[in-house]
Amino acid sequence: MSTVITVQQLSKRYGTVQAVNDISFNVERGEIFGIIGPNGAGKTTTIEILEGLRKRDGGLVEVLGLDPQKNRTALNEKIGVQYQATSIQKKMKVKEAVDLFSSFYSRKENSKDIIEILGLEEKMNHFFGDLSGGWKQRVTLALATLHQPEIVFLDEPSMGLDPHARRELWSIIQLLRDRGCTIVVTTHYMEEAEKLCDRVAMIYNGEIKALNEPRLLLDEMAVNYLSFYSNEIDELQLAALPGVVKVENEEFFFKVFTETMQQTAYYLFKHCEEHAISLTDFKFEKGTLDDLFVHFLEKGKKDERIG
């Protein structure tokens, strides 16, 4: 594998706000790289610096061997960009848009391929303005990929899509990756990052808080927990069980975060049996990126309070 994007100590500020603060990462050819984080975390700023749309204040950025700030025109031939919530002209037909955008690139590729993958044949004579959100997304994705770019940047691609359209979009993105394209995608849907991305960088407050394969990220962090209902158990006694990191209680629904699931479960049941406490709906829960995300948010807020 070779590196297609290098980012070193990138920073960007708007006035007094440090939008991106000293972040570094690489993207390898052929992977789906996710940039995740809450709204306003610095995801869009980062991706727009990679695309050459924004100037950076400091650090080094190389995309396909080019500096996006200096060689945007050359870079635009080789990348494709799908923006957050932008559209094309409402009165433009899909086939006209495809034809127009094909004419922008010197590399003449066959756009029929991408139209087939995206299933756009049946919509070629429709006006863009008449399409549903999911179809609009497909059309703009076609426009971003019809020149067979080496890297495709997708900024919040599934925003506003229904769950079905979202899943279809994921399989299309994976198909593009299988055809040799590198994908950089930002999202604040953790489920999307988990199911779609090969690696994710979690950004919060303009800094990378974690970077790894989604599965490994979850393994690394103590976000696994036991969940159950009980209206008799005492929260303090739960917290005293071996291995317990944190206990959450919401109307008798308990989440017991632990590093040693089996051991804690054993002592939990033992405790309940000895004291004749009833538990219902007991589950071993594997944490999701959502939990990890909330974990960072809470940690961030705590740090702010302390600092």
Partner: peptide
């Protein structure tokens, strides 16, 4: 309106001058 709805922005990331 092209500026507001992002039509121009979409052109911006293509080689179109």
């Amino acid at each position: 309106s092209y500026r507001e709805t992002g039509v121009l922005r979409r052109y911006q990331s293509t080689p179109l001058k």
